[in-house]
Amino acid sequence: MCALGEVVHLWQRDIRDDERCGCGARFSGCAFWRRVGERAFGGWNHVDVDRVHALRDAVERTRHIPRLATAAEAPPEVHEYADFYARVYAAAAEVSGAEVVVDSSKHSALAHVLRWAGDIDLRVVHVVRDARGVAYSWTKRVSRPETDGAEEMTRYSPGRSAMLWNAHNAAFGLLAKRGVAVHRLRYEEFLAHPRSELLKIGDFAGLRLRPGDLAFLGNGYADLGVGHSAAGNPMRFTVGRLELRRDDAWVSSLPAKQRRLVGAVCAPMLRAYGYPLLKEESR
């Protein structure tokens, strides 16, 4: 498998802004991505980023999901936009020698676009976390190392985060109803049983993992090597031992008023995913 990071941001942050790859090098100086660009487009300089952005605005927005999900046939713009991603995936697979490439973009609208790409075997791992934990995470100030600390990650208010949590999770559920293979995984279950959950993901991806493939996992930790994640969480720069622990800081750090707000807005889906709404329910 080859992890590519959040390819949805590659066009602006990497091709245009030349931010840092997960390996630490600038995108333009990363040998892996340079080879991918050559195979996919004859070089990244041949990619019309303005055209990619125009297509994104026309088809890859949350508001477009109902149209993407119900259309009998996608318009040409959808196929053109999906082709940019298909070419990156195919080139990355060739350069890395991987059977499966992983795009962790997380944009539900992008997944709905990619389902129309006939040359992509799209399989979605839908990772769900308690909406209150997600809301708290989005309030924190986190610098973006790829900008040498000049910028911070996007932040959302708990109310907006709750609305986005509902919209994106519902969209991934709708994707499954449209025939796309979707494997749902709760964040808490993954942290509790990372080895068995990774074996399930391997099966879902069509790979039969061997015990040695998970040798990087220890008792409560993972040993990480250098990767080439194009964009994503700052943790993508981590090399070496990473502690695996469940982060429940939101229970004490998210103000009670905001906790109740997010819980009320997301209540139906929290229940559907098996999350308790009250402390008493978790006993």
Rank of each mutant, 00 (worst) to 15 (best):
A98S: 15
P76T: 03
N233I: 07
L214F: 12
R129C: 06
E197M: 09
A98E: 07
V180G: 08
L122D: 14
D103I: 00
H193M: 04
G118V: 05
G202V: 11
V49F: 11
H64Q: 12
L174E: 15
G202N: 04
A249S: 12
L175M: 13
V49G: 12
V251C: 03
L277H: 06
S108L: 05
G37M: 01
P194S: 12
K200F: 10
F190V: 08
A162E: 03
G220W: 14
P234Y: 01
L4S: 02
N169L: 13
R56D: 15
L270G: 08
G29T: 11
E94R: 04
D203A: 09
K106F: 00
H9G: 05
V251I: 07
R129V: 07
G29S: 08
V134Y: 05
Y81K: 02
L174A: 14
V101I: 02
R283P: 14
W138A: 06
G173C: 11
R16K: 10
G29W: 05
V226N: 10
A91V: 00
F237V: 01
A93S: 13
P268L: 08
Y221H: 09
D48G: 02
R259K: 07
F41T: 05
D247H: 06
R35V: 06
N166Q: 15
R132G: 00
G149S: 00
G43K: 10
L185V: 15
S252K: 12
L68D: 13
E80D: 01
H9W: 13
A93I: 14
V52C: 08
T147N: 01
L242W: 15
F216W: 02
H107I: 05
L207Y: 00
T147A: 02
A192S: 03
A40T: 07
A58L: 10
P211H: 04
R39D: 11
F41P: 01
R259C: 03
L261D: 05
L164M: 15
F32N: 02
A267F: 09
H126D: 14
V182A: 13
L4E: 00
V128E: 14
V78L: 03
R39M: 08
T70I: 03
D213V: 13
E73I: 07
Y275N: 00
V134E: 02
A131Y: 11
V101T: 05
I15N: 04
V182L: 10
R195D: 14
R13T: 07
D50M: 06
D57M: 12
Y136R: 07
T62D: 14
H193L: 06
D247F: 06
C30G: 11
R13L: 09
Y275H: 01
V78Q: 08
S161P: 01
A150M: 07
E281N: 09
V142P: 13
P158M: 08
A98V: 05
A69L: 10
M163E: 14
H107W: 12
E243I: 10
G43L: 02
E280L: 15
F172N: 11
V7N: 01
S157C: 04
L55H: 11
S282N: 12
E77V: 04
A222W: 14
H168W: 11
A72T: 11
G37K: 00
R35S: 14
M163Y: 15
I201Y: 06
P158V: 06
Y85R: 06
R34Y: 02
G133L: 03
D48M: 05
G43S: 07
H112P: 03
A3E: 11
D247A: 03
A69K: 05
